[in-house]
Design a protein around this nucleic acid. Structure first.
Length: 94
DNA sequence: TAGTTGACCGGAA
DNA sequence: ATTCCGGCCAACT
């Protein structure tokens, strides 16, 4: 396929989907896993337009630790993050 | 085809 | 501390 749906984009989604709950990766980390450690810019653009409800893209944050952006709203993103972290904590033990 | 945009990053003023 | 600039990559117009 000369014009595949950009495997990089697919990889980004795949990576995001593999992120365990409570874990937060930076755009740079996701880009690195996707095969383009320098495409952190593209990662943001891809997730921005191709947001999927099946993909926990809310686990992707900026290097500063700031949530960044979210199609649903940064509040929701932070809330989910805290919720998942909290849940993951009790899921590890207990 | 070329130019602009964007949920970024890092450094400099 | 905040604001601005340049660089990087993919998608959109």
């Amino acid at each position: 396929m000369t014009s595949r749906p950009t495997s990089f984009t697919q990889c980004v989604f795949d990576v995001a989907r593999q992120i365990p709950k409570g874990a937060t990766l930076t755009y740079a980390q996701v880009a690195e896993r996707a095969g383009r450690p320098h495409a952190y810019r593209a990662v943001g653009n891809i997730l921005n337009k191709n947001y999927d409800p099946t993909i926990p893209c809310h686990r992707v944050v900026r290097s500063d630790g700031t949530p960044g952006g979210y199609n649903r709203g940064r509040e929701q993103k932070v809330a989910i993050l805290q919720q998942e972290q909290h849940l993951g904590k009790r899921d590890v033990v207990r």
